[in-house]
């Protein structure tokens, strides 16, 4: 790993200690979650000044707690630990998380953490898209205390987010939706270790009449610097009964919301085409979970 200046790896025992270390080392400090993306960052020359890694695995942030209508997930929960939560299998509304985790190799799942996947702020990752689909927020601890940031506002660009200097993510909050809600995730990739060419998370809530009360669509992968909401698709579904024809029509609208990149893995044209297919299939999968 190309950390020419790295001198110390700290393992603080409290959030206060982390904040103190972040202040002490300023630009030279980096929070260490599972560490699976360290190499990716250092190989791109993005960590030239890092002199201190602050490992937050000893802070006790390894909980997954449903309480008062909110599911709280500690920042240090590994993907493997998250996958083993019974709620992920039982609750259709959490399907997008369960589906997204299935794509990730076990070696990464055993190390990577929920907080790390969000703080990395790379739109090519899968879990940020899943958490955003579920209207997730992060709690950031910092010198001025804790504050909540909606994931809709959190991602600011590739490797950029709304965290201020001295802040770090302590937990992710997911609001429990109405009972008839289900979600799903699909990803187009080359192999298990590849970043997404395009991925999509969808969530749908049905009312008593079986009409779509609320839909949510989030695209990741090569769609830009941050995950992108598929608002046209959401609008096309809301208030209507989601049958095969409507899903087809709604999926056609995603083109209006996407301005994907072209790179060595896929063209923008391909990404737009695959987005339609994936969003339609993802909604079909989500709806099957409600039957």
């Amino acid at each position: 790993m190309a950390f020419s200046k790295l001198k110390e790896v700290y393992t603080p025992q409290s959030s206060e200690e982390v904040v103190k270390l972040l202040k002490q080392h300023g630009h030279g400090a980096l929070i260490l979650g599972g560490g699976t993306f360290l190499h990716g960052l250092s190989a791109r020359g993005l960590l030239p000044d890092v002199e201190a890694l602050i490992d937050i695995q000893k802070l006790g942030l390894d909980y997954f707690t449903p309480s008062n209508g909110v599911v709280k997930t500690g920042a240090s929960v590994t993907f493997t630990a998250l996958e083993k939560q019974p709620e992920l299998t039982k609750a259709p509304w959490l399907g997008v998380l369960k589906d997204a985790l299935e794509y990730i190799p076990v070696q990464v799942k055993n190390m990577a953490t929920v907080g790390g996947s969000l703080a990395s702020s790379l739109p090519l990752f899968d879990l940020p898209v899943a958490f955003m689909t579920l209207k997730g927020s992060v709690v950031a601890a910092g010198p001025k205390g804790n504050r909540k940031i909606s994931l809709d506002e959190f991602f600011k660009g590739q490797f950029e987010n709304a965290l201020q200097r001295g802040e770090f993510i302590t937990e992710v909050l997911l609001p429990v939706p109405p009972r008839r809600t289900a979600s799903a995730f699909l990803k187009n990739e080359k192999h298990a270790n590849a970043l997404a060419i395009l991925n999509v998370g969808v969530s749908i809530t049905l009312d008593k009449a079986g009409k779509c009360e609320e839909a949510r669509v989030v695209f990741g992968g090569g769609v830009g610097d941050v995950p992108v909401r598929g608002r046209s698709c959401e609008n096309a579904l809301e208030g209507k009964r989601p049958n095969k024809e409507l899903l087809k029509l709604a999926s056609e609208t995603v083109e209006a919301d996407l301005n994907p990149i072209s790179d060595h893995r896929a063209s923008a044209k391909y990404r737009k085409a695959i987005a339609k297919v994936l969003v339609e299939r993802a909604f079909e999968t989500a709806l099957q979970k409600l039957n």
Binding site: V9, G35, L38, V108, N110, M111
Partner: peptide, 12 residues
């Protein structure tokens, strides 16, 4: 647990 040893710092 299986992990990639190229991704894990020895200190960790």
């Amino acid at each position: 647990k299986a992990v990639y040893s190229c991704m894990l710092l020895a200190l960790s």
